[in-house]
Design a protein around this nucleic acid. Structure first.
Lengths: 219, 219
DNA sequence: TATTTATCGATATAAATATATCGATAAATA
DNA sequence: TATTTATCGATATATTTATATCGATAAATA
């Protein structure tokens, strides 16, 4: 019998953040036709602590692992996908069909996780009514209508910083519940709207900072 | 007198991760000609704990804050920038001049943090020797030569998953010390190479997961 | 100038996260 | 079949991170 999902303790944020790494790693093993893997082996390959990995997997695994053998890879993949929301249907739209917006529209990896980017919005006549990777770019005025129609929960902002707040407000009016923001702007949103900022420049800056700390240590 | 940087306790990882938000926020205030700001006000605007903000700022601030007034905005901005590595010169190159690679090449925000993306590499004749945002795309064979010549420390991977490991190996041979990886692949690198994975699909999946957790809570 | 007050920064406590220990057990081996 | 062993999973400890408390102080106000 499967464990009761409802009764499980809520997973920790840090564990959630490590799931992607496990998933990627397990898919690789699956491609190599491996059947099972131990927490110890995963830990050693991913440079993580063994107990941490075991606890992480215990938190999402529906069937647990077996002594001397470890976890069933295929089953674990399904468990993690289920946990990350593969079971829900999550529809998203993009505001801003520039280079970055188009890059996201073209990226086919989202559907892997049950996520669909259904459409984009822009104000530039050059891209409006064009399709990018079979997804239409609509004039930005159509946003509320289309979002409500398609029951969109997630909005992605890839417009220039100057327009980000404006677009954000429109998203909120359009019934969006979560925003993935690529503009280097702090968005002002109602309490119940979830915002995840993705500042490319700062991600790179942080990498560079980690690098310089590391280089100094090796002096 | 400035506090001695050398003698400061190393900043925590979580604090480092919050720096971007502070920086963005402070720049906004600076644009509005504000002179100073208190930790309490920042906390309330960014939805953070007041003591946490105070501790974070104390960790990077060179001059501290004043009772009743708070921190000097301009000085804090400089302190954070310095901390994030603005003082170092960090040069990066991109492997993969597709939509995402071009989006990064076009993004001018990196130089804000002392980061320069100097060039890109690709194997597609359609983009080789073209320039994107005044940055050249070179054939991928030229990578070691150019990287060594320009003393490049950071490599960015935006090629399809199937080529990512190959490109990664070439980066390592070319003397790169840190890799920012956008391909959904676990890269195999020597111990001393820093890898930061940026899996777009999973970022969105995690946002969606957080959203569904939140929606369930409000039932 | 004296008093009040917002805010800092130091120190203390609490919560979350990571790591260690160890008995139980399924598979491998003798 | 009996013994060994790798690995799990539960429980315990340590570390890191977040939050609370409080005295000190610079600026505002009386």
């Amino acid at each position: 019998m499967n464990r009761d999902e409802q009764n499980k303790a809520p997973i920790s944020k840090q564990t959630l953040n490590r799931m992607p790494a496990y998933l990627l790693y397990l898919k690789n093993l699956d491609l190599q036709e491996r059947q099972s893997i131990s927490a110890s082996a995963i830990a050693s390959d991913l440079n993580l602590n063994e107990i941490q990995v075991r606890k992480d997997l215990a938190a999402v695994s529906s069937s647990g692992g077996k002594p001397r053998k470890g976890f069933d890879i295929h089953m674990l993949i399904e468990d993690i996908k289920a946990y990350l929301g593969y079971d829900d249907v999550n529809n998203a739209v993009i505001a801003g069909a520039g280079k970055l917006g188009q890059a996201l529209l073209c990226y086919d990896g989202f559907s892997e996780y049950g996520l669909n980017i259904l459409a984009a919005f822009d104000s530039d006549p050059a891209v409006i009514h064009q399709s990018v990777n079979a997804k239409m770019v609509y004039p930005i005025e159509k946003m509320p209508e289309i979002c409500h129609l398609l029951n969109i929960q997630i909005g992605i902002i890839t417009v220039p910083a100057a327009y980000a707040q404006l677009v954000c407000d429109q998203f909120v009016k359009s019934g969006i519940r979560a925003i993935w923001n690529f503009a280097p702007v702090l968005l002002n949103v109602p309490q119940d709207i979830l915002v995840q900022n993705e500042n490319m420049a700062v991600s790179l800056a942080i990498l560079s900072k980690h690098l310089s700390v590391k280089l100094k240590k090796n002096d």
